[in-house]
Design a protein around this nucleic acid. Structure first.
Lengths: 242, 242
DNA sequence: GCAAAATTAAATGTCAGACTTTTAAAATTA
DNA sequence: TAATTTTAAAAGTCTGACATTTAATTTTGC
């Protein structure tokens, strides 16, 4: 952790980069304490503000945590699933919303990944995930539900489906795919008939998963994908017509 | 962008959070200039150091870019695929390396996602991706190739496979899954026979994709997944025996 | 009058130093 | 010995200065 690189970037970015590399390659193991801010000033020969800006960059990426007080300091943080989820979702959401990714592309990615997950979910589902799925289906049927609430429940349903695969890495990867779609889905106003159709497919899906029927689950997901695309098409062309 | 939240966190984290929320919900559109650091000091009633630490947090997440000079400032950054890839890979890599995710779990997640991608790749593959795949297969066969170089080529091969689906969102999602495996793969020392077996499967896979044979591609990927697991098992049990 | 050069101003980047707050350990006291 | 107080180390915050970069403005030279 003595040499930095890329003299084009800011000092704080260079320092953050050097420390980040040391964390990634394992030179700095989890829970290791970094040198104090003052010591880092001396090591990198910069002022404390610069060191602090570097540390804030690392904290923003959940690479370190800081602790005040006598035995405090900056420590290499064990990246947990919750933090990783949050970052994934932020990044995915912005990537979709800022790059004019069309609905069809995002939708395809999401359902492709979800279909990959379904066979595992069918094989390994446990009662708790089935309960969650059924509960969300019930919520989706309630009258007076706003479009946002409907979409939120949709996300919860699909997350339960994914989590039923009992592979945390898979859940993490799909969190972004599923959640990032929500803002796009929120742009759609679902008619009562649309909702009915979705609810029926969700029910079919939950049944298939319960019966450990991977083939049927895949079929339903494929239908759900094309129906979702069709609904989006209807809404968007209607809007364009106006 | 007037009210902040969570008084438990540091001021710089609160401010960064407030601005981040404004970016995510679209209040601050892409390329919008944030107020200058001095103006932010007044708005949030904090010192310039604190504002700067907040801005560095946002910069670390690729949410803003800064520009010096007369017409400079901090601007909302359009998150591009390259930056999103990089963040995904860092996060995924650390998640795997820091959480003692066992090889089988990571491997399952990766190949599950890749298998989902393959039918699309088979349908849409263009010559350039086939060329890349063939080139990497050729490299993998060269003698004197280090394990790291072999793994790197493996990653390049699989990325080409994924990119052949021509869905940038899918490519982005899978980048993490594929690249994050590399450090785990690097822990394996492949015997010459292992390499031969992998190269043969890669060739089969490239052929299947070229022939737009999704079923065969899936079969090969399944074989590749189980072979990879078997090789890892052999290496790890041998190491445990020592 | 026009083009090149010099100046200016606004913004971020960096530095130095002081003070505040938090926290755990050490020292003191009952 | 246990509760209390003190101390010290560390991050968090503030202030003010100076450096650097950059575009706009002004001046100068022809």
């Amino acid at each position: 952790m003595k040499t930095k690189l890329d003299p084009s970037a800011d000092l704080s970015a260079q320092i953050a980069g050097a420390i980040r590399d040391a964390i990634i390659d394992g030179t700095l193991p989890v829970d290791e304490r970094l040198p104090s801010e003052i010591e880092l000033c001396e090591q990198f020969d910069v002022s404390r503000s610069t060191v602090r800006e570097a540390l804030k960059r690392l904290a923003a990426q959940s690479l370190i945590r800081t602790q005040r007080g006598a035995t405090g300091g900056a420590f290499v943080k064990r990246l947990n699933y919750a933090d990783a989820y949050a970052q994934q979702i932020t990044t995915s959401t912005l990537l979709l919303s800022m790059n004019e990714v069309d609905f069809a592309t995002a939708c395809e990615a999401r359902f492709t990944l979800e279909r990959a997950c379904a066979p595992l979910s069918a094989k390994r589902r446990t009662p708790d995930h089935l309960v969650t799925m059924r509960a969300e289906i019930h919520r989706q049927g309630q009258s007076g539900l706003s479009d946002e609430a409907f979409c939120a429940s949709d996300v919860a349903f699909h997350r339960a489906l994914v989590d039923a695969a009992h592979n945390p890495v898979l859940s993490y990867q799909l969190a972004g795919a599923v959640e990032a779609m929500q803002p796009l889905m929120n742009m759609i106003t679902f008619t009562a008939r649309d909702r009915d159709k979705i609810i029926r497919l969700h029910t079919d899906l939950a049944n298939a998963i319960e019966q450990e029927n991977a083939v049927e689950a895949d079929r339903v997901l494929q239908t759900l994908a094309s129906e979702t695309n069709a609904m989006a098409d209807t809404v968007f062309t209607a809007r364009a017509g106006r």
